[in-house]
């Protein structure tokens, strides 16, 4: 469904990703694990077209999205939940969601579905995004991405700074999306949180591919994680 093929990318002349390849199937959760600064966020930005590729391709469902101008990438069905939420501040909850809905012309029914997943947002539609609590902001960032009816979903540390009940809520949404056939690329620091949902785990080290293995293998042998991620 979503495939990165030997991607080289970076900031200006500073290369970060080196021949990185990944593949996420529909209805699968692939977790990207790596140390701070390994290039996980950079990978997501490269998928969204926010960084120019030096070489390589990003393909979504048969379309080479890396050839498109950046604003057309999400229109093919990639929803992005960035690290640090990055809501449109100054805009209300409703307006943030409206921008998500417009990406692929989703209707009111989609909005209702998304709000059913996050009932807390329904009560706060006219509140400015920046005045939401941290947990509510994460809900909004997630809801905004779901509003475009994504085929692929990129989540960059969605549980950063959240309390356990909120982490559980986000986890359930991710699992629901998988059941709906969405290809999910998940970046997460909390290895334990990841292993309970991931189907496969891909390690990234200094912008290069590390091992890719079923999450099941890691659940049994935790030492592999320690080797890549350190403690």
């Amino acid at each position: 469904m979503l495939e990165l093929d030997a991607v080289n990318a970076g900031y200006g002349r500073a290369q970060v990703l080196r021949d990185l390849s990944l593949k996420v199937e529909a209805g699968e959760i692939l977790c990207l694990l790596g140390r701070n600064g390994a290039g996980k966020t950079t990978t997501m930005q490269a998928i969204m077209g926010l960084l120019p590729l030096m070489s390589g391709r990003v393909v979504l469902d048969g379309t080479e999205v890396s050839r498109l101008p950046p604003h057309e990438v999400p229109r093919h069905g990639i929803g992005y939940i960035p690290q640090g939420r990055r809501l449109f501040s100054g805009l209300t909850v409703a307006q943030n969601l409206e921008i998500g809905l417009r990406v692929r012309g989703s209707g009111k029914d989609v909005l209702e579905e998304v709000l059913d997943l996050f009932p807390r947002l329904r009560e706060r539609m006219d509140q400015k995004a920046q005045t939401l609590s941290g947990g509510e902001q994460q809900m909004l960032a997630t809801a905004r991405a779901l509003c475009l009816r994504p085929k692929a979903l990129l989540l960059d540390e969605p549980t950063e700074g959240l309390q356990p009940s909120m982490i559980e809520a986000i986890r359930q949404v991710i699992v629901k999306m998988r059941a709906a056939g969405v290809a999910i690329l998940l970046v997460e620091q909390r290895v334990d949180a990841v292993l309970s949902v991931a189907d496969r785990v891909a390690f990234i080290e200094n912008g290069r591919n590390g091992d890719v293995m079923p999450a099941e293998a890691l659940r049994q042998d935790h030492s592999i994680v320690d080797r890549y991620v350190g403690v």
């Binding site: 930005q45 969204m48 077209g49 926010l50 950046p70 604003h71 057309e72 990438v73 999400p74 229109r75 992005y80 960035p82 990055r86 809501l87 449109f88 501040s89 100054g90 805009l91 307006q95 409206e98 921008i99 998500g100 417009r102 990406v103 692929r104 905004r144 475009l148």
Partner: peptide, 17 residues
């Protein structure tokens, strides 16, 4: 609305079409 979203975060504006 599009102008204000672009003002708030240019990259996220792109990431949302």
């Amino acid at each position: 609305l599009l102008m204000r979203a672009t003002q708030a975060d240019r990259d996220m504006a792109l990431a949302f079409g």
